[in-house]
């Protein structure tokens, strides 16, 4: 049984749609909620992604549009954008909402790990699997190829770059990170 006690009356705000407008997505106001996007969405056929609902929640400024994992289920195939009768750049707007989500601290653990990896090593996908290191050795080459993370000096430079655009703060304050930390403390 699904949750029967509807425990809240939604509070609606303009802030998210205003952010979209400021970023040049005034089309948000033209959405007619026809559902064409959801109906054609190849991801939504298999997952919980409901494209129209994302747009709806953004219009109404419901924080859950940013906090729900649904936002990350879009594969950016652009099918909805191709068909929306109001010509909304839906996919681009979803990407914008993702950025907004991260700015407000909503980041998925895997994404956070990736960011941290990048901060720590200068690579999103570093060579950190012992298997590869051994294989490389067997070919007679360095265990780790000569890239950023072989030299702490370059890693530091990357970290400076990341700090200069404030990305370190964005990821450090991630709400998921906080939750994780809380869980760890407990």
């Amino acid at each position: 049984m699904e949750d029967l006690k509807s425990d809240r009356i939604l509070e609606i705000k303009d802030d998210i749609s205003n952010e979209l407008r400021k970023a040049g997505y005034a089309e948000i106001g033209a959405c007619i909620q026809c559902g064409n996007c959801t109906a054609g969405c190849p991801s939504g056929r298999r997952t919980a992604l409901r494209t129209r609902s994302i747009i709806r929640k953004a219009i109404l400024g419901l924080e859950e549009v940013l906090s729900d994992k649904e936002l990350w289920l879009c594969t950016t195939c652009y099918t909805c954008f191709e068909r929306c009768p109001r010509n909304l750049p839906i996919t681009d707007m979803i990407i914008f909402l993702r950025n907004l989500a991260v700015q407000r601290g909503y980041i998925l653990p895997n994404h956070l790990n990736l960011c941290r990896m990048f901060y720590d090593t200068g690579h999103g996908v570093p060579i950190n699997d012992e298997k590869w290191n051994i294989m490389r050795e067997s070919y007679g080459v360095n265990r780790v190829p000569p890239t950023v993370h072989t030299d702490p000096k370059y890693v530091k430079e990357v970290q400076e770059l990341i700090s200069s655009v404030g990305f370190d703060k964005t990821i450090a304050w991630g709400k998921y990170a906080k939750k994780e930390e809380k869980a760890e403390k407990k």
Partner: peptide, 11 residues
């Protein structure tokens, strides 16, 4: 045909 019933929020 495939559609969303927007009132149910279901495909």
């Amino acid at each position: 045909v495939r559609a969303e019933d927007t009132l149910l929020q279901k495909q």
